[in-house]
Computed example of a mutant assay.
Amino acid sequence: MKVGLFFGTFNPIHIGHLIIANYLAEFSDLDQVWFVITPMSPFKQKNSLLDNIHRLAIANVAVEAYPKLKTSDIEFKLPQPNYTVNTLIHIEEKYPEHQFCLIMGEDNLKGFHKWKNYETIIKNYQLYVYPRISGETTESEFLKHPNVHSVKAPIIQISSTFIRKSIKDKKDIRAMLPENVWNYIDEMNFYKN
Score class of each variant (00 low, 15 high):
E119C: 10
G16S: 04
P154K: 05
N11K: 10
Y128S: 06
K94L: 12
E187V: 07
E119G: 13
V181W: 01
L88M: 03
P178G: 06
L143G: 07
Q32N: 14
P42R: 04
V33T: 10
E26Y: 00
L5A: 05
V36C: 08
K110G: 12
G16K: 07
K110Y: 13
I133P: 07
N108L: 07
T84A: 08
N22K: 10
A175R: 09
N147W: 00
P79M: 15
K144D: 15
K144H: 15
A21Y: 00
I167Q: 02
D73I: 00
Y66H: 09
G111T: 10
T9C: 14
E75P: 13
F162H: 12
Y128C: 06
T87V: 03
F27I: 07
P39G: 12
V61M: 10
I163A: 09
V3A: 11
N117L: 13
V129Q: 14
R174Y: 01
P67R: 01
E26W: 00
V181I: 05
E179G: 02
E187N: 15
V63Y: 02
Y130L: 09
S28H: 04
H98P: 15
A153I: 11
Y118C: 11
F10Y: 15
H98M: 08
Y95N: 13
I58Q: 05
M176N: 14
A59F: 01
Y83D: 07
D172G: 03
D31Y: 00
E26N: 08
L88E: 03
S160F: 03
L88C: 04
L177E: 02
L109R: 05
N108T: 13
P39C: 09
G8D: 13
P42V: 06
E64G: 04
P42N: 06
Q80R: 15
T71W: 01
L177M: 05
R55I: 02
K77I: 07
A57D: 13
Y128R: 05
T71R: 02
Y83K: 12
K2N: 14
P146T: 02
F162I: 08
N82I: 09
Q126M: 09
D186Y: 14
E106D: 15
I53P: 00
E106R: 15
